[in-house]
Deep mutational scan, measured.
Amino acid sequence: DHDVVPEDKFQETLHLKEKEGCPQAFHALLSWLLTQDSTAILDFWRVLFKDYNLERYGRLQPILDSFPKDVDLSQPRKGRKPPAVPKALVPPPRLPTKRKASEEARAAAPAALTPRGTASPGSQLKAKPPKKPESSAEQQRLPLGNGIQTMSASVQRAVAMSSGDVPGARGAVEGILIQQVFESGGSKKCIQVGGEFYTPSKFEDSGSGKNKARSSSGPKPLVRAKGAQGAAPGGGEARLGQQGSVPAPLALPSDPQLHQKNEDECAVCRDGGELICCDGCPRAFHLACLSPPLREIPSGTWRCSSCLQATVQEVQPRAEEPRPQEPPVETPLPPGLRSAGEEVRGPPGEPLAGMDTTLVYKHLPAPPSAAPLPGLDSSALHPLLCVGPEGQQNLAPGARCGVCGDGTDVLRCTHCAAAFHWRCHFPAGTSRPGTGLRCRSCSGDVTPAPVEGVLAPSPARLAPGPAKDDTASHEPALHRDDLESLLSEHTFDGILQWAIQSMARPAAPFPS
């Protein structure tokens, strides 16, 4: 592969990997390779389809078979030569091979799209000592099968071997295949498990690692696999990028399955594409389908809103127990993405979901129960707010008499603000006073009005108090039968009158 990737590009890729991570280095090298001529790309395919690569990765054979028959990708048995050289000459001794072996032994695996480039050397060096003999053996194999790289107009793939297949390693990572398949204008990513390549439709969760975000852009890794992070704060999961590491605690105790298979379609829109997988259930989501939507993949363990709600429900009964003089119970939860139609709101002032922060849900004790107040519409209280300059209440639009249902020339009671006709409430011909108009209920007259088809109010509507207090003497005590009587009149003013009279009014101040 030294004929494909020059030394300066190799060093530039290593520097970019240390600065921005393996995914960015892979993407940059792939983009550079696509700008080369067809001879360089053909050399790339020839390096990929060597015999030892085909033996190690069985899924490469179907890719090789898909090439046109007129494309010669065979390799000479006596060494490598550029395709432009007409004579089959043995190339001179390859010093770059020693360079590659020494550099890969030092860096474990470079971040390139060629056999030198995919593992994360920093994480491997940190986690190597417990498994040094086995990992050293794996390093000797890295130059042979560490990076199976493929690129063409139909298929483009980048393979990364790992030393996680050490025997006896619980939940060992089998390997990473960062794979971009450009077929019919689409893009897919796969993962390699035990020599087999699994596409998103049959993606397997190998051991402790999972394909957290099938994305090839942005600074985030394709698999949430930063070796420096180790395990999740809650004892979460091992990262795919942690090559040759000792077994780590796999999943939280509440995880239903340690080796679950995540779905390959969004649980909201039932469509495929780039998904984020939940650590607590097999569901996966688009970032845009979450509520609120996320802009980037959160670091650490992530769970959907259903799993978060289940966790909150487990903690909430203990938080609601009476604990005198104790601060509110704080339950730190990872930043969760909410699927459509589901929402768990945190306290005000918290950062938005999706940031690399930890939301704190506070379970406050329930407030003391209070008697429910009568629910009145805002339009129902409008007549009470229509007060004239002299303190006389004006008529609201649409006000109707509670007896006849007519809204023409209605009066407004100064005591309960109900609309009424003087002739309907006082049919006996009582003279109307000039000021202080009161309806039949507030004036103490319980004589029913002779209106055909309208039920008369119940005599129990009024329960006047002592006459010594004029204001308190007109406080009506309405009961269920009074409400039914008012409802039978089918008037809004009657219902409003009952609601206003049912509310307690402050006692009249004593004259000074």
Rank of each mutant, 00 (worst) to 15 (best):
P293D: 04
P368K: 15
P335L: 10
D279Y: 09
C386L: 14
A371Q: 07
C413Q: 01
E350Q: 06
V268D: 06
A507V: 11
K468D: 04
S431C: 12
P253T: 11
R318Q: 14
C401P: 03
G244H: 09
G402T: 02
C442D: 01
P324H: 09
L352F: 08
D445E: 11
C278T: 10
V268G: 11
P298R: 14
I297D: 04
D482M: 01
S441C: 07
P397H: 14
A428L: 13
R323W: 09
S291I: 11
P327R: 10
P282M: 13
V360R: 02
A417Q: 12
F285S: 13
L373I: 12
P506G: 15
Q313L: 13
H425K: 04
G354C: 07
P293I: 11
H259D: 08
P328K: 12
L381F: 14
P383C: 15
A366V: 09
A340K: 10
L258P: 13
A418V: 04
A251C: 09
R338S: 06
M355S: 07
L359T: 05
C416A: 00
A460S: 14
P427N: 11
L384N: 11
A370N: 11
H421T: 01
D469T: 10
L294K: 05
P457Q: 04
L359P: 05
L385E: 04
P249I: 14
F420A: 03
P293N: 07
G273T: 12
S369H: 15
D482H: 04
Q243N: 15
T435P: 10
R270D: 05
I276M: 08
L258E: 07
G494K: 02
P348L: 12
H382V: 11
A310S: 09
H382R: 07
S339G: 08
P511H: 05
S485F: 13
V403K: 13
D445M: 04
A456F: 12
S485Y: 14
G241V: 11
G429K: 00
D377P: 09
G336I: 12
L333K: 14
P298H: 07
P459I: 12
D482R: 01
G429V: 10
S379A: 11
W422F: 14
A463V: 10
P433F: 07
R295F: 08
G465I: 08
G465A: 11
E321Q: 09
A504I: 03
H415L: 11
Q243V: 08
D493S: 01
Q257S: 09
A396R: 08
